[in-house]
Write a protein that binds this DNA or RNA. Structure first.
Length: 573
RNA sequence: CGGGGCGUAGCGCAGUCCGGCAGCGCGCAGCGUUCGGGACGCUGAGGUCGGAGGUUCGAAUCCUCUCGCCCCGACCA
């Protein structure tokens, strides 16, 4: 591609709203352009990256026997009603009516469509197992789209669906996807990890996420450095604190003026936070939920929601708190009524904690669950943080931020049962098809690569997904320099090398800066000086030194260089 | 949904408090000088000041409504 003809220009200044490095750099490099909140055009340069990402996904999905197809982006609402998701999913599912007043939705995923296809096209065990996949637009009306391609509302996702006769078959399909996903993300060059995740309202039996490390990540993951545990903070567990063997001491009320925060109470009474019981209030529908947790821990709302099997869980209001007899700032379950009391195991394992007295300006010391108040649930509902002990080996865990780039999910028969997608086994007996679903964010993967590979000058694409292998720059305006560049461009292109040829009438500084910004892995330049020496200057985007190589044999040289760079990713895969 | 902020040339911004010629930088076009890390000079094009209504002799500026966008929180594959 000749840059003089390229649609889209690089820009020096970035839109004020771009926060993430990948957002800024991809806009500056003319790869993406916003159309609305969370809605982007992929410019020619950016779309080349996306197509490479998609090509790698296709290769690896085909390798595990996936069959590519394409399912619609607009669905009749009816199938979403059949599985209840029409009602369960919030406003991120966009609903509308067509001209005939028929209810429709914009696809955010395709389980229903797959199940619908199964009803008509798969009736026999002879037609199973199967893996189907597609690369299709999705629309999720996120409350807060941000960060360029990291979190958008319209996006392309690879979603695949495994269709098996039974759980054993699902296990196999799931493992096949693990293999494929490992290869895919390694070929993208990403630094990632697979972690345990929440199954949420999808109701499946197992879910794991592929997480790429990035300080810009919206998720926190807990990792045991021994390699025997890694989980999203939403579900991460840790070794519970040992049961205290202290004697229970008499409950005693103490005055704690102006100590309405747990830290304030701990300071005032000069006890560690871990020796206090903190009260947190939620409403699960109409039910008031009174959570008691050790003062040094935070509630993990996902764990709490799963424990209570509560669809929605929202913080309680001041009125709701007062209505059960609790005094905000000085609250404990002692003497409250009409509340579901959930006690974290950290509190149950401790003795003689400081807690609220439900009286303004007073706390109690030596509170003990079971003696001073009853728990409806005693469970692990606390959020794991760095330093908590690995549930498997007991070593302290670390916490890292990460971007979710893919997930794999054992759905089971949640959808096929609801939609009557069954097959007949050898004995003529009917069973629901057992499904798995597996996603990869295409644009997000590309943007995540930028997050992981950039410097202050621009992007440093892994060669597997770079828009071009080579940036070729003509330096100066001498006719024979330009001729030499044209010739090199033609011969490289003819041999299959992808070249972005900066043939613009620009000063060298502009060209160098744009080449660094766009981030193709190999840069070649020809100038008066190099031409006179029958050489071409070569520089890798990852290096800060350039070398001159003879013009003679340059094409095979570059081909070899590309193969070598590619090999690094293939060997990982 | 709650809180905060911003909409002025393609991009980044000033001007708004205190009403009175719509500006600056980058980019863009032309000419000239320059040419190995985002050059310089001259000339020029480019604006419903997000939109609607109101106040006023006069509104980018004040008032009301509205739309869009961003940030924090809530929520969420």
């Amino acid at each position: 591609m000749r840059m003089a003809k390229l649609f889209g220009r690089t820009v020096r200044e970035v839109p004020a709203d771009a926060e993430f490095p990948s957002h800024q750099l991809m806009v500056r490099a003319a790869m993406i352009r916003p159309l609305g909140a969370g809605i982007y055009s992929l410019m020619p340069l950016g779309y080349r990256v996306i197509r490479k990402v998609e090509a790698i996904i296709r290769e690896e999905m085909d390798r595990i026997g996936g069959q590519e197809m394409l399912m619609p982006f607009v669905h009749p609402a009816e199938i979403w009603k059949e599985t209840d998701r029409y009602y369960l999913v919030g406003p991120e599912l966009t609903r509308f009516k067509d001209r005939g007043s028929r209810e429709m939705v914009l696809a955010m995923t395709h389980e229903e469509v797959v199940a619908d296809l199964l009803r008509t096209d798969v009736n026999s065990y002879k037609q199973l197992p199967q893996i189907v996949y597609h690369l299709q637009s999705k629309w999720r009306d996120e409350p807060r789209a941000r960060g360029g391609l990291i979190r958008v509302r319209e996006f392309t996702m690879k979603d695949s669906y495994s269709l098996d006769m039974d759980e054993a078959g699902l296990d196999e399909s799931y493992r096949a996807h693990e293999v494929a996903y490992n290869r895919i993300f390694n070929r993208f060059g990403l630094d990632f990890i697979k972690v345990g995740a929440d199954v949420g309202m999808m109701g499946g039996s197992k879910s794991e996420e592929y997480m790429a490390f990035s300080p810009m990540g919206e998720d926190t993951i807990l990792i045991c450095e021994n390699g025997d545990y890694a989980a999203n903070r939403e579900v991460a567990v840790f070794q519970s604190f040992p049961q205290s063997d202290e004697e229970m001491l008499p409950l005693e009320e103490v005055e704690t003026p102006n100590a309405s925060t747990i830290q304030g109470v701990a300071d005032y009474l000069n006890v560690p936070l871990s020796h206090t019981a903190k009260a947190v209030f939620f409403m699960a529908g109409e039910q008031f939920v009174f959570v008691v947790i050790r003062g040094d821990l935070d509630v993990n709302e996902t764990k709490l929601r799963n424990l209570l099997d509560a669809g929605d869980l929202v913080p309680a209001t001041a009125e709701q708190i007062a209505a059960v007899g609790a005094v905000a700032g000085y609250a404990s379950p002692i003497g409250v009524h009409d509340a579901t009391v959930v006690v974290d195991q950290s509190v149950a394992n401790a003795r003689n904690l400081v807690a609220g007295a439900n009286k303004h300006g007073y706390h109690v010391i030596n509170s003990n669950v079971g003696r001073d108040y009853e728990a409806d649930y005693i469970a692990d509902i606390s959020a794991a943080t760095a330093g908590h002990l690995c549930p498997n080996c007991g070593q302290p865990m670390i916490a890292r931020r990460a971007i979710e780039i893919g997930n794999i999910f054992k759905l089971g028969t949640r959808f096929t049962e609801a939609m009557g997608a069954t097959y007949l086994d050898q004995n003529g007996k009917s069973h629901p098809v057992v499904m798995g679903s597996y996603g990869i964010g295409v644009g997000r993967s590309a943007a995540t690569a930028v997050e992981q590979y950039h410097d202050d000058r621009g992007i440093k694409w892994p060669i597997t997904i770079a828009p071009f292998h080579v940036s070729l720059l003509s330096i100066g305006k001498d006719a024979d320099v330009l001729e030499a560049c044209d010739a090199l461009y033609d011969s490289l292109t003819a041999s299959g090398v992808e070249v972005l040829y900066d043939d613009r009438n620009e000063r060298p500084g502009v060209k160098f800066n744009d080449a660094d910004l766009i981030g193709n892995p190999i840069r070649l330049s020809i100038s008066r000086k190099t031409l006179d020496a029958d050489e071409v200057e070569l520089r890798l985007r990852t290096d800060d030194q350039s070398i001159n190589v003879p013009q003679e044999g340059i094409v095979p040289h570059i081909r070899q260089l590309i193969d070598g760079l590619m090999a690094e990713y293939v060997s990982l895969a």
